[in-house]
Design a protein around this nucleic acid. Structure first.
Lengths: 149, 149
DNA sequence: TTGCAACTAAGAATCATTCTAAGTAAGGTC
DNA sequence: GACCTTACTTAGAATGATTCTTAGTTGCAA
């Protein structure tokens, strides 16, 4: 964590360590606002701008990835390896899809989808319903998620 | 055009016809702001809210599609048939990719990328460089595009 | 220990989008 | 063709996400 920052030429600060700690191992692809909310608990003086600045720095250095999978705020992903995503139409849940992701991406990179367009990477977004929302009796809306379950 | 609106139960207004006319046949996937700018020329009294309301209505009725391919404003696409997109890293250009789109999408729909997730649709986004930007001597930045070439 | 460049805090500014309220007009009915 | 209802439009305020600015702070190399 500490070394990862230093290796990128970024200074190690409590704010950055806190943000990285929150992000790493969090599979929910949180937004900047969500992260800020959680981080305020351990670092009450933290500024919103710091969260954005830090996430921008981490993204630039390849320590995390910014993903715009639906309209609304950008989500941040600690998993920078090539992979796809499944997005729930109903509750907005984002799930990493590792299966075949690499193979598919590398195969597609060799495609020429449009004359002259040189492909650097391919990402696939699966849209549909997550397990919770697909279950007839327990649809989980955004509103329900906010009130806690 | 006129019939398409009526068929959806939408009233035909000069604003809606102008918006649809701008959108149909425009392959550049314009944003609401871009459309508003062009539409002001023919309908100077048009309100921004009308553009958003109308685009929302058209999207809901399946006459166009809202696409979030990168961070920034939503782009609107008159092509509602299933297809993929190529996005230029450099200038932001969005290109429709029809090749194999249908076949790939339907094949992927049968996949089970995540346990329990029921896939409704798949979209692929190719990232890389467009012809203009890939050419070593004539990179086209957003700034250059705005000043006109 | 010191110096400085990079970082952070606070809040204003900006941009995209949605909401609200009041007036307008499309289109069905008589 | 006139009238009426309801959907639509306008204008501008409100909201939410993100970026910018400025001044003060701190990590870390020397």
């Amino acid at each position: 964590m500490l070394d990862a920052l230093r290796a990128c030429g970024l200074k190690v600060t409590p704010q950055r360590l806190a943000i990285l700690n929150q992000l790493v191992g969090d599979p929910t692809h949180p937004t900047a606002t969500e992260l800020f909310g959680r981080l305020r608990e351990e670092l009450p003086s933290m500024s919103f701008a710091t969260v954005y600045n830090t996430l921008a720095a981490l993204t630039k250095q390849g320590l995390c990835a910014a993903r715009q999978l639906e309209s609304g705020p950008v989500r941040f992903d600690p998993n920078v390896a090539p992979h796809d995503h499944a997005v729930c139409d109903s509750c907005g849940l984002v799930i990493d899809v590792m299966t075949e992701g690499l193979a598919a991406a590398s195969a597609a990179t060799n495609l020429k989808p449009v004359q002259g367009f040189s492909v650097r990477s391919v990402e696939r977004i699966y849209r549909g319903r997550c397990v919770q929302c697909a279950a007839p009796n327990e649809p989980q809306t955004d509103a329900e998620k906010e009130t806690g379950d």
